[in-house]
Design a protein around this nucleic acid. Structure first.
Lengths: 210, 210, 210, 210
DNA sequence: GATGAATGAGTCTTCATTCAT
DNA sequence: TATGAATGAAGACTCATTCAT
């Protein structure tokens, strides 16, 4: 009996967890990292206490949402690296795909009230770092992407350009973001670049501040 | 001496008002438009009720801060237009100067909880629109800036790239922002541009959604 | 036992709700419609947020208190109509009973900050109107109550005479109110009335201004 | 010079005082005893600090407003007593005149946050007591006004019936109040009165509670 | 394990009162 | 003396978090 009942329970619980994470991602994108947790529970169709049983506090929930987003972004990076023969095209595809995953929301999620040393998240970020740096490095090695930028530059600029405009339905931004990402990508090409102030930013530089 | 002492304690009050606006600008940059007003009052060194005497509510304060920022940005635009012979250099100088004025903060200020018909602000925005569109149009007419972007594109992208990372001291971002603005500017040049998705965004497009 | 345990902790919650309504009625009678809600919560023995969970804002609480008072007043009217053979005695009994239900408090509750179109309350008021007008009309038809007054006159005068004296323990007023209601009732009799200024006031007249 | 300048000053000050008292009376009638003092100052066309210079606190202001109202009411009582041959007509005229002086506002003014022993006010109340009791007693001696009521009954009932309905423009009430006062007066006549509960209330009874 | 309810701490806003000119 | 400005204290309301069923 125990063996039968337990998995059924776990199925429900897992489903609830997933629904909460999904609802939280949308709410964070819409309201920012301060989205009311009761509202997230409501959207997920669960009681607020269920949210707290699964995620001890807001930070934990943010961690999990970040993990989910990063996982999908990493998958896009792998796919782009594997399937695009042109190394700059791989970068470009990755950037646009990450935008669609709302990576911009991570910007506000990751900077505020978060433990950058949270183990699972650190691992995920390490993997994201690895794969994006590989993408960039390959395009630079091919002479297609200017040499004076680092993966950190690309990640931050891309995150900023895709951040939600607070208080706005994000639909307009979707349209704009892809235009501006394309401008950024054109600026990243090796054709006639201007000198950049400062020096290339790696993802280590970003992590260091935490 | 020219005008008799009509405003008596006006000096102190004006000073307080200015200090509140300054404190609010910094707080908005740091915390976003939802920065606690009590904290702003504390930073300005006044009681909370003084803030409310000068600015009836958060919206009014946001309006005034926006006005102050826009005024300075407009001044930079005029200076750039007047002093830079190269029309693209004028755009570039304007973009970097606006970043230093924390125009990115306006993104969150202007989109949330604001009355776009507030007369003074509407006027200021109209002037900013005029001068930025002039800058862009001149560079486009000179064949230096790609024709498929509008002033709205430039304003939004520039605002996003200079938005504060919530919860972070903004110093790092200052360094990054200028790098990324330069990438954007390189992407805006007429040298080998990629096709952009969607169509050019004017400032009217942005105002329309408000 | 008839219905299965669908409402679980409903017992506690219902009790709290009732205690809040009771405390609010007393506070409104004592302080008027602007009674501090925190004070009401304290008197009810609950946290202030519990009050807000049950009643979204002051208006909602006022609505519910009004409903409770009106319900009881209506019940008295029905009882008086059914049990008093003398039609003027029915009016008299109703008036004195309504005073004991603190109908005077409704005067301040209903006139201030209230949505006259709130459906439940509109229904309750309609029923109160119906039953009081019936009482009055019957006594007028019997020639016992002067013909130049309307139900609105009676309701307003009765409400005013039973309104709490702000800042006073209401015990004294209870004694006075019944005396003055009796004077009013004597003035309502058909014996030797003076001409009244203006014209009879119906309850529609009162509702119209809301 | 001093003798010339001083009286001019005093003339201004006296005018300000009077304007504040008048504005306060209207505001109290409209908003109740809790009317914002800044609003009163605004209506009087003076700075708020001027109000405080003239009236140390709200209680003092209420005292002065009460004095002014009582003075006028007393004047009406004297006039009615002197000019009306019919003693009940004198009572009636007094009651309606007092209503027009907004004596109902005094009800809330006098009961809340007031020192009944404030000397000037005590004197004024004593005079009002004297003159109203004389009016009542004369009508009772003439057999025109029922013997089981006291001046306190009349004063309280009359005050209650003329109290402002909170949150309403008082115009409607003016119309209603005179109707209901007339009903009350009819109830006060010696024609076929009902037995009243309790015993006659003198003005001493009312003062005693403070 | 899941839920509705309760709660205290925090934020915005108002207002009586005091201060400096 | 009259005034605009400053202020602290209080009240409405929200929200993250805990508790009892």
């Amino acid at each position: 009996m125990t063996t039968v009942a337990a998995p059924r329970r776990r199925a429900d619980a897992t489903r609830n967890r997933a629904r909460i994470v999904a609802a939280a991602r949308e709410a964070f994108v819409e309201y920012g990292a301060m989205a009311p947790l009761d509202e997230i529970a409501r959207r997920a169709g669960v009681g607020n206490a269920t949210l707290y049983r699964n995620f001890a506090d807001r930070r934990t929930l943010i961690h999990q949402v970040s993990l989910a987003v990063i996982d999908r972004v990493v998958a896009h990076a792998h796919a782009a690296a594997a399937e695009e023969p042109d190394s700059f095209a791989a970068v470009s595809r990755f950037v646009h795909a990450a935008a669609d995953e709302r990576i911009g929301a991570l910007c506000s999620l990751l900077s505020d009230s978060i433990d950058p040393h949270y183990p699972e998240l650190a691992d995920a970020r390490a993997e994201m770092k690895q794969v994006t740096e590989d993408l960039i490095a390959r395009a630079q090695a091919d002479g297609l992407l200017r040499a004076d930028v680092g993966a950190g530059d690309v990640m931050v600029a891309m995150s900023q350009l895709t951040r939600p405009l607070p208080g706005t339905g994000c639909l307009d931004l979707d349209r704009l973001a892809h235009r501006h990402l394309q401008l950024l990508l054109d600026g990243l090409r090796t054709v006639a670049p201007s000198p950049l102030p400062g020096c290339a930013v790696t993802l280590e530089d970003l992590a260091r501040r935490g």
